[in-house]
Design a binder for these strands. Structure first.
Length: 646
RNA sequence: GCUGCUGUAGCUCAGUGGUAGAGCACUCCCUUGGUAAGGGAGAGGUCGUGAGUUCAAUCCUCACCAGCAGCACCA
């Protein structure tokens, strides 16, 4: 007879098997109304799940974090029923809850359009209002396959076929509609509530494989209540405002045009931003023991054949044919083989290791057209690339050193948080298992030493070695891999890199491929979104504008601007015959961090009225003090560290 | 690359089978005003490219290019 232990430690004894529903009712009518599902010994299950033995039970109500997932999963089922009701002949496939919502993939000859959303949503509301019970039923595998085949649901039948034999096959019924589903679900369709919205249609490959059929996916979002939904929709709008493509245009940072798809035209202001980031990185690498190099853009095809890239990535390389010489050159898609060439010049000693070769390496890759995205995913980009040639013993300490540098650099750019993914051996791969064991454990060990929390990304390593990926998130919640560290035993072998060890014999070095920003282009895109264009002073392309109130102050304004410029500030003057209100507005919208306003008063007293972006306060200070203060604040973080504020 | 959508002035966008419009920006004039839009005038587009249908195409059809969303890809 089950004894149910509740989260507060109290125990309820029952003299016959019960379900969550009866337990909730026994506790109280309020809980019985609020309970949507339960955690049975830590596992989220239906409220109607029978409990036959002693167990820990926690009820999940709308307030609990698990509720969102349930609401979204149930919403996906409701969506599927609505679609099958409105568009007979449509097959269902899968429909999970995802971050912020849910989707369902349908197989239908005719694709859905956003115009279909209104009728589908209306039908969904009907189904929700009907409040049919979700009823779980466990069935025999063969019966289930036959059942779905007879309904013409060949995708569902295929899913069951591929489920491991140990897996219980369960169906969920909501009224007349049935879906194959592992569950759990809430009590009835009414529990989904009113706070949902269909968001977009898109194609998606069956089982995520591009060789399979393209299904029609409908995305939706769902929340506990209207307030949450509104807040989410509002957040999306805000995110759109900080899209780097929009801000890039507004702030005149860069542009793209069709004759150079996937390549960026950096405008003067955008290039200032780029140069500041590059100068900063150069200092950080230099002071971390890296040696900067520069290698060729174009190399003979033979070279890429030797490195193995021609075989694997030929389709993604830009090729140049030289008719006169009957040669084929390829624009470099990466820098590592070139760095190996530098390593190979002369005879290397173990005393030189670790040798850290860095390059702001400009690379070209013919990315698939659908992958291009603003400046975040382009075909011409520059990596803050470096290769560390070292011994196996040095992998761990070098990794620790790298992670520390990376975290410090991300912090300087305003990113306190980032995710780390550990990608281990893929199939197919180069190198034997013993080598992989060594590489993976070295990396794991290094993560432990460096205090890095990572999530495992199984089978996603590079073909030559395991890797760490450092992921930053953009304004719209999309994740972008920026930093990376890859352990490589293969390339040194392939390109015959070696050093003379302490024992006088020749050895293969290990190569660590690593990048912190990844590509400048992508990183700057994320940076623009991170700050919504309101950069900290050290990065701002235009750091200050000197704006006059009356034209009598023009001469003094020029003097102020000259003083700012002499202190290394990027400054512009605004001597137009606009009112000061208009000038404030213009430069605020342009995200200029410092507005120095000068009128007759300031000219007479040799002061400036400083107004900071985002503040209405005016700070009238003597010119010399303003220069000193701003110059200090505009100092890049690495240069101002340890320095006392003036 | 795949599915769907989009492409009109520098930007944001409206619009029609009879070769086009707004706001902002831009130029000029008036205005010298103390912290988020002072007023007026003007200039600006072979409606993404190419073909087809039509008496007539920016509008309809097809192809291509580019972009957007998602999927796949990302050494």
């Amino acid at each position: 007879m089950p004894a149910i232990t509740l989260p507060d430690g109290s125990v309820r004894q029952f003299d016959a098997p019960v379900t969550g529903t009866t337990v909730a009712e026994a506790i109280g009518p309020g809980l019985a109304r609020a309970a949507l599902a339960m955690k049975l010994d830590g596992k989220l299950v239906d409220l109607a799940t029978p409990i036959e033995r002693d167990a820990d039970v926690r009820f999940v109500t709308r307030k609990d974090p698990e509720a969102l997932e349930l609401i979204r999963h149930d919403a996906a089922h409701v969506l599927a029923e609505a679609v099958q009701d409105l568009y007979p002949g449509t097959q269902v496939t899968i429909g999970p809850a995802i971050e912020n919502g849910f989707y369902y993939d349908f197989a239908r000859n005719e694709p859905f359009t956003p115009e279909d959303f209104a009728p589908i949503e209306a039908k969904m509301r009907e189904i929700i209002a009907r409040g049919a019970k979700f009823e779980r039923e466990e069935v025999d595998r063969q019966d289930a396959i036959r059942f779905f085949q007879e309904k013409g649901e060949k995708y569902k039948a295929e899913i069951i076929q591929d489920l491991p034999p140990t897996e219980t096959i369960s169906l969920y019924r909501q009224g007349d509609w049935v879906d194959l589903c592992r569950g759990p679900h809430m009590r009835t369709t009414a529990d989904v509530g009113p706070a949902f919205k269909l968001m977009k249609v898109a194609g998606a490959y069956w089982r995520g494989d591009h060789r399979n059929a393209m299904l029609s996916r409908i995305y939706g979002t769902a929340w506990r209540d209207q307030k949450e939904l509104d807040a989410y929709l509002h957040m999306l709008e805000e995110a759109e405002r900080r899209d780097h493509r929009r801000i890039g245009k507004e702030m005149d940072l860069f542009h793209l045009q069709e004759e150079a798809a996937g390549a960026i035209f950096w405008h003067p202001k955008g290039w200032q931003l780029y140069l500041k980031a590059e100068a900063y990185m150069r200092r950080r690498l230099d002071s971390s023991g890296y040696k900067e190099v520069k290698t060729p853009q174009l190399l003979d095809r033979v070279f890429w054949e030797k490195s193995g890239h021609w075989e694997n990535y030929r389709e993604h390389m830009f090729i140049a044919r030289i008719e006169d010489e009957d040669k084929t050159l390829a624009v470099k898609p990466m820098n590592c083989p070139c760095h190996v060439q530098i390593f190979r010049q002369g005879i290397r000693s173990y005393r030189e290791l670790p040798l850290r070769l860095a390059e702001f390496g400009s690379c070209h890759r013919y990315e698939p057209s659908g992958a291009l995205h603003g400046i975040m995913r382009v075909r011409a980009f520059t990596q803050d690339d470096a290769h560390i040639f070292c011994t196996e013993e040095q992998i761990a300490p070098e990794t620790v050193r790298f992670v520390e540098l990376l975290a410090s650099i991300y912090r300087d750019f305003g990113f306190e948080r980032f995710r780390v993914k550990f990608s281990d051996r893929p199939t197919p791969r180069a190198g034997d298992d013993a080598t992989w064991d060594r590489a993976e454990s070295a990396l794991r060990e290094a993560c432990a030493t460096a205090g890095v929390d990572y999530e495992l990304n199984p089978g996603e390593g590079a073909f030559y070695g395991p890797k760490l990926e450092f992921v930053l998130r953009d304004a719209i919640g999309r994740d972008w891999q920026c930093g990376t560290l890859q352990v490589d035993f293969v390339m040194p072998e392939r390109l015959d890199a070696e050093y003379v060890g302490e024992d006088g014999a020749r050895h293969r070095p290990v190569m660590l491929h690593r990048a912190i920003l990844g590509s400048f282009e992508r990183f700057l895109g994320i940076l623009i979104e991170q700050y919504a264009g309101r950069f900290p002073l050290w990065l701002a392309p235009v750091q200050a504008v000197v704006a006059t109130i009356v034209s009598d102050a023009d001469g003094y304004a020029e003097e102020v601007a000259a003083a700012f410029a002499a202190a290394g500030l990027a400054v512009e003057t605004d001597l137009t015959n606009q009112k000061i209100n208009a000038k404030v507005r213009t430069h605020s919208l342009a995200h200029v961090p410092v507005l120095a306003v000068v009128g007759r008063k300031e000219a007479e007293t040799r002061t400036v009225a400083l107004r900071r972006l985002g503040s209405q306060a005016q700070d009238v200070v003597p010119l010399e003090e303003a220069v000193a203060r701003l110059a200090l604040e505009a100092t890049p973080p690495d240069l101002s560290r340890g320095r006392e504020p003036a």
